[in-house]
Write a protein that binds this DNA or RNA. Structure first.
Lengths: 163, 163
DNA sequence: CTATACAGTACCAATTTAGTACTTTTTAGC
DNA sequence: GCTAAAAAGTACTAAATTGGTACTGTATAG
């Protein structure tokens, strides 16, 4: 599908949300509530983010999670690496050498490696600081100028049952 | 997984193989044999490539498939578009507006649109001509045995974009 | 007329992904 | 210490997607 998985998508949501208050410690339950996601799902994502050292955890009462470093130093590539299958690669052959039985006959592997590098670089240049929710004024301004913008959602857009 | 599907991968294999002799018409069976893939699978991929007008088909005896235009004018993005789910997008929200119920609250969609554009651009700048396997000598040698072949390939098929 | 080869459809098996439940461990605060 | 909060860990099920194949129909060259 050339899609990131939903869990990775949740990861970016969670991380950008945390980036809006980088010093604060937030519990999984708080994040789940704020983002409209299931607690178990959020926990799963946070655990993986913790393993990748993108967040630090604090157990026990008043515990939770906190970003391990400034939002500007955390890229989308970091989140993808934490939550998607490793190693990075758009094709099996470009990710893992030796798996593909065509390998010896296949001469396009180098090109895939090149493409991967470009894609990865794209993900690496965007930090969650850049993605973090803008201040209110900016948000409003961003919305106004789009004339003829279609699909301004109706009242049902807020309806959400997590899970 | 941030992977292209296997069928898309096969698509690039098939297209680059066909690009090595752009004028020739090749049957699905011939391609399957050359690439070590199942005939039914190759047929499925070729059908999709045909729907996207990347190859043209000829039915009946001595029929087969042929590239619809010079290899230098067919990009990886074209193949991805033909074989992956449409529209292009790394996340559901960035591909289809109105699907995500978080949309109104989600402020990171713009960033994803930006990332998508960069990734797509990366795929668009690589043509199958650039990925095509063999050096000139090999290509010519592969051509000689086929007697009565119509259409002498011009030098333009070797055109490479500066990487 | 017949063999070849694409076109289309439908289907099944395998894999992957998403989500949930439950148990254990840690820790702050009383 | 006791208790409650919250992460860590494990296991499992259900759903969706993907990959591959079979079968029938249609066009065409010789």
């Amino acid at each position: 599908m050339l899609r990131i998985s939903k869990l990775t998508d949740y990861g970016t949501l969670i991380m950008t949300h945390m980036a809006s208050a980088p010093e604060r410690m937030m519990s999984a339950a708080e994040l789940a509530d704020a983002l409209g996601l299931g607690l178990a799902t959020v926990s799963k994502v946070l655990k993986a983010l913790g393993r990748a050292a993108l967040v630090v955890s604090q157990r026990g009462t008043r515990g939770g999670y906190r970003l391990s470093r400034p939002p500007a130093q955390i890229s989308i590539a970091d989140i993808v690496d934490a939550l998607e299958e490793q190693p990075f690669g758009l094709t099996e052959c470009s990710a893992n050498s030796g798996v593909c039985t065509l390998e010896s006959r296949c001469r396009i592997r180098d090109s895939w490696l090149r493409i991967n590098a470009v894609v990865r670089n794209a993900l690496q240049t965007v930090s969650i600081a850049e993605m973090t929710p803008a201040p209110l004024a900016t948000q409003l301004l961003e919305h106004i100028p789009v004339t003829g913008e279609q699909g301004v959602p109706g009242p049902d857009r807020l309806a959400r049952q997590p899970g």
